[in-house]
Design a protein around this nucleic acid. Sequence first.
DNA 1: ACGCGTGTTACTGT
DNA 2: GACAGTAACACGCG
Length: 256
Amino acid sequence: MPEFPDLQVFARNLNKKLADKTVKAITVHKAPKLNVTHQELQDTLHGQRLTKVYRDGKELYIQFSKGDVLALHLMLHGKLFLYGGKSDNKYPVIDILFTDDTGLVLTDFQGAAKPTLNPAETDVPDADEANITYLKQKLGKTKTAVKTVLLDQKIIRGIGNAYADEILWEARISPFSAGNKIPEDKVEDLLKAIRSVLKHAEEEIVKSDPDIIAGEIRDFMLIHNAKKKKSPTGKDILIKKASRKTYYTEEQELFD
DNA sequence: ACGCGTGTTACTGT
DNA sequence: GACAGTAACACGCG
């Protein structure tokens, strides 16, 4: 479920609760795409102190004292739970037990959530790092719809289906605009919208549930919101159905 | 009760 | 070969 703002808050909360704990054991229940063997993961992390949890793209990165990193991609349905004593959550994917007998478990009924030990570094900027030169260059060389570009994790990381709609409304750009037809000043609006929408969402999530580490808060969304019929300025919200829905209004200019 | 949903990949067709 | 469109993954939730 989570996109950039959710993960940002989860990471901060997990960091507060888990920093300085030492790994006693790792149990992998179901992670077919894990890049190392269960034994290798256990051998690598056992005895290491957790130094930091942070967000990177759509993943949570858990950093340990010898420099190893365990990345967790929650995919659509991954959920994290902290427990004391024993974990009794359904659909466990991976379980990290600490020496104080508390633990962190990642669950996913779909089994798609994916842990990765020491993920490769990437040059792709996070949504809050991309600069105007980069965005103009990437959009300028493709006729692909701007929403598709925003969702492309190989171009910019962290934005998902819901926030892409919020961002494009904020920038008043139609999601169906061709990347290379968007004028430079509108790309500047887009970059501002990326930053402001994500930051505002993070604040709303914290306000609504300060200790959240799983799940979704979406009530505050202005456009990508099944409960709303009109934009803040009173225009009808339109919905285009594809494999994911796109919510938008006529206030958003189409460049084509 | 039942319709809706966030990410990614694989597959189709152009 | 690049790109566009779509379903599947399989439940939780309201």
